[in-house]
Design a protein around this nucleic acid. Structure first.
Lengths: 115, 115
DNA sequence: ATAGTATATAATGATATGCTTATATGACCA
DNA sequence: TGGTCATATAAGCATATCATTATATACTAT
């Protein structure tokens, strides 16, 4: 799939609507620097596991992210082949890094629990 | 207000949520190339005047657009001084031009009605 | 003043969203 | 096989969103 120069307004608005949620936007920013598994997200966000799972499903539905099972864990990653990846990336690039969340996780020993 | 390098996630998600509506996103794209008055939007979108007005209010509330009364008309324009203008512009730049809508309007003689 | 045009606001209703709890699925291990 | 961990799905509920119709406000022109 080749990235196009412009993104159809219908698709763009749908995309932006999905990114227009703080939890999902943060997820995407996190995923832009490394893969995460679901339990890491659960550690980061003060939210139930099903809530996390439902956000990930929405991101998966329009193929913003990919999932890959490794043993009992499922890792999510950015889909850089997405047709609108240029738009997505240009947005994420303008958001502050979320390394702090990851560091906090490690302090709590939660990062390792999945790795 | 100086543009910052990155946009706080809370504000960014709020912004993206507002742009995550096809009508508002199209409005913003239109405004990025020229001012419009409300009746022009009413001509372009198949929607009631109050619906248009309410979308514009949301855009105004977070200062994405400015309004300026000229006689009995109120013209809206992009607020290029917005703190997050770089993010906004980078998004709008990746959307297809909407000159067609404007041309259609002119064909119907509706453009002039406000000008 | 009055009527007409442009726009905003209020009230309302249908649908969408985002969470919760409960339950199902699937992988691993004793 | 049974138990446990990681994740997904289902059902339910509170709130948000987006449209509509009705009404208010503001300017213009006669």
């Amino acid at each position: 799939m080749n990235p196009k120069e412009t993104v159809d307004l219908q698709r763009a608005s749908q995309l932006l609507k999905l990114l227009g949620d703080k939890t999902r936007l943060t997820m995407m920013k996190l995923l832009s620097s490394h893969e995460c598994c679901v339990c890491e997200f659960v550690g980061i966000f003060k939210m139930s596991q099903p809530a996390i799972s439902q956000h990930l499903r929405k991101l998966r539905d329009i193929e913003l992210v990919r999932e890959e099972r490794r043993g009992q864990w499922i890792f999510y990653s950015i889909n850089s082949e997405h047709e609108d990846y240029l738009l997505i990336k240009s947005i994420l690039d303008q958001l502050p890094g979320q390394d702090e969340s990851i560091n906090d996780l490690e302090k709590q020993g939660l990062r390792i629990s999945c790795g």
